[in-house]
Design a protein around this nucleic acid. Structure first.
Length: 428
DNA sequence: TTTCAACGAGGGCTAATGCT
DNA sequence: AGCATTAGCCCTCGTTGAAA
């Protein structure tokens, strides 16, 4: 038989590891031509396997009674049947013809020269908003786009799109180019819009212009709209999707040193700032984002569980921010002390109150850099490293999906971290 | 079969203004 | 003065396809 059906774990992206369970990819080779692979979907479900148990040479998982093995067999025989049927029709199947008929469930059309036509792939009829065409104004297309794609999303997201729309309308008015049709948008126009955005007064902030990077995000949105029009076959190509727009500069990682931490914990703050100080301390000791910290404090039993040997407590949960990665935080004794000093929990601040307090905290510490909510989280990351946890462990504590994120944004490897590593190794 | 990097976008965070 | 609102900034992860 001139077809081979192989499976593999879908390769993880850079900086990521194999998740568990992990998606299986199917790869078919017909007459020596290999397909790049497609998700193995059987009975409307992706076939998932435990990557540690996946045996590539046997093409199955080593776990007994793993339902995935059965699904793989069904999937494979279905593909083989498609191939058999095509041969029976007198065709010479290709990797694409088999893949097409298997995935789409309809036969490809045989052209006189023996090649195939894949109607569902080549000219898929898609529902198009009839009000939009290449003649439509770019502002209308933008509106149609976010109405179609942001309808079910948060209000905030829609507002961001409307903000771009407002600025776009204003640009067209100020430069006297009413109703710019979509097909007239080109790279030069986009660059001029990008430059204009950086010069305007948005009316709200006196001393602040739109940064080049922020202007870029608006152009990316317009690019998304044009991509959509291309997808709907209203435009031939997107003239601005190859432009490289300036990006944000990465900020320096700022964190509090141990003596600052000690100072913060020892500080007696009374009055209106007590609550803000308390929440900052909680974030600094756990490394949680403010929304996560609030949830944890409000329902501690739900998040805490004892370690296996019963000597410690782990705080576990899912981060509120997508993709909701799990975190496991060793509960420090200082956290208990924190809850002991209050009855119940202090009223969570409006974030505005918390931020203005951080200026006060900065002054009290004599810290030369700006202290922000992120400083608390970064401090926690570095503190756990100093305490002897490895980067992999800190990554889990902070709820990062991959270690490279921790390295990139939170952790500067200093001599002190190496010293704490020496201590850990020597104690073995 | 494994490994690699650029890029786009979601949404929390920050820092202003506005309102009472 | 203090809380509410919101434009703008930043962190972070998923998508993507091909080379090693």
């Amino acid at each position: 038989m001139a077809i081979s059906v192989r499976y593999r774990l879908r390769p993880p992206k850079k900086g990521q590891t194999y998740s568990n369970p992990h998606v299986l990819q199917c790869r078919i080779t017909v007459n020596g031509t290999q397909d790049s692979g497609f998700s193995a979907v059987w009975k409307n479900e992706k076939i998932m396997v435990n990557p540690a148990k996946w045996k590539c040479d046997q093409q199955r998982t080593s776990q007994r009674d793993d339902p995935a093995n059965e699904l793989i067999d069904g999937h494979r025989s279905a593909i083989r049947e498609v191939h058999r049927n095509q041969v029976a029709r007198g065709w010479t199947p290709t990797k694409d013809s088999v893949k097409y008929e298997f995935i789409e469930g309809i036969e490809p059309e045989l052209k006189p020269d023996g090649s195939f036509y894949f109607r569902a792939w080549d000219s898929s009829p898609k529902p198009v908003d009839r009000r939009i065409s290449e003649e439509s104004a770019i502002t209308e297309a933008l509106a149609a786009y976010y109405i179609q794609f942001c309808g079910n999303y948060a209000k905030e997201r829609k507002e961001r799109w409307q903000y771009v729309q407002r600025l776009l309308i204003r640009y067209l008015e100020e430069t006297h180019q009413p109703d710019l049709p979509c097909y007239k948008v080109n790279a030069g126009w986009a660059r001029r819009f990008h430059a204009w955005l950086q010069t305007i007064d948005t009316g709200r902030w006196k001393n602040r212009k739109i940064s080049p990077a922020h202007a870029s995000t608006m152009l990316y949105r317009i690019g998304s709209v044009l991509d959509w029009l291309v997808e709907e076959q209203l435009l031939i190509s997107n003239p601005i999707n190859s432009i490289k727009w300036p990006a944000y500069q990465q900020k320096e990682v700022i964190f509090l040193e141990q003596h600052h931490i000690d100072q913060v914990l020892a500080m007696q703050v009374r009055g209106a700032n007590f609550s803000a100080h308390w929440w900052f301390k909680l974030m600094m000791l756990t490394g949680m984002d403010y929304p996560d910290a609030k949830l944890y404090a409000q329902n501690r039993q739900k998040y805490e569980s004892p370690t296996l040997d019963g000597t410690g407590v782990i705080i576990s949960g899912l981060r509120l921010k997508p993709p909701h990665v799990q975190y496991d935080i060793p509960k420090l004794p200082q956290v208990d002390a924190l809850f002991a000093e209050v009855t119940g929990i202090p009223e969570p601040n409006s974030h505005q109150t918390l931020y203005s307090y951080l200026y006060t905290l900065q002054d009290m510490l004599g810290f030369e850099k700006r202290i922000t909510m992120k400083t608390a989280r970064k401090t926690a990351g570095v503190m756990f490293l100093y305490a002897g946890y490895t980067i992999a462990e800190v990554s889990r504590i902070l709820g990062h999906k991959s270690i490279s994120t921790t390295e990139k944004y939170y952790v500067k490897v200093t001599r002190r971290i190496v010293e704490s590593g020496m201590k850990r190794v020597n104690n073995r």
